[in-house]
Amino acid sequence: MLQISNTVTLADWEIEMTAIRAQGAGGQNVNKTSSAIHLRFDINRSSLPAVYKERLLALSDSRITTEGVVVIKAQAYRTQELNKQDALNRLQELIKSVTVVQKKRRPTKPTRASKTRRLEGKKKRATTKSLRGRVV
Rank of each mutant, 00 (worst) to 15 (best):
Met1Thr: 00
Ile4Val: 09
Ser5Thr: 15
Thr7Glu: 12
Thr9Gly: 07
Glu14Pro: 01
Thr18Asp: 10
Gly24Tyr: 09
Gly27Phe: 02
Gln28Glu: 08
Asn29Phe: 08
Val30Cys: 10
Val30Phe: 02
Asn31Thr: 08
Asn31Ser: 09
Asn31Asp: 08
Lys32Trp: 02
Ser34Arg: 15
Ile37Ala: 00
Leu39Asn: 03
Arg40Trp: 01
Asp42Met: 04
Asp42Leu: 05
Val51Asn: 09
Glu54Pro: 00
Arg55Trp: 04
Ala58Ile: 04
Ser60Asn: 15
Ser60Gln: 14
Ile64Gly: 12
Ile64Pro: 12
Thr65Gly: 13
Thr66Gln: 15
Thr66Asp: 01
Glu67Cys: 00
Gly68Thr: 14
Val70Tyr: 04
Val71Asp: 10
Val71Met: 12
Val71Tyr: 05
Lys73Asn: 08
Ala74Asn: 08
Gln75Asp: 13
Thr79Leu: 07
Gln80Ala: 01
Asn83Glu: 07
Gln85Cys: 02
Ala87His: 01
Leu88Ala: 07
Leu94Gly: 06
Ser97Arg: 09
Val98Ile: 14
Lys103Pro: 12
Lys103Arg: 14
Lys104Thr: 13
Lys104Trp: 07
Lys104Glu: 15
Pro107His: 05
Lys109Ala: 10
Arg112Trp: 02
Ala113Cys: 04
Ala113Ser: 12
Lys115Trp: 04
Arg118Glu: 14
Leu119Met: 14
Gly121Met: 13
Gly121Tyr: 13
Arg125Phe: 01
Thr127Cys: 03
Thr128Ala: 10
Arg132Phe: 09
Gly133Met: 06
Arg134Gln: 10
Arg134Phe: 02
Arg134Cys: 03
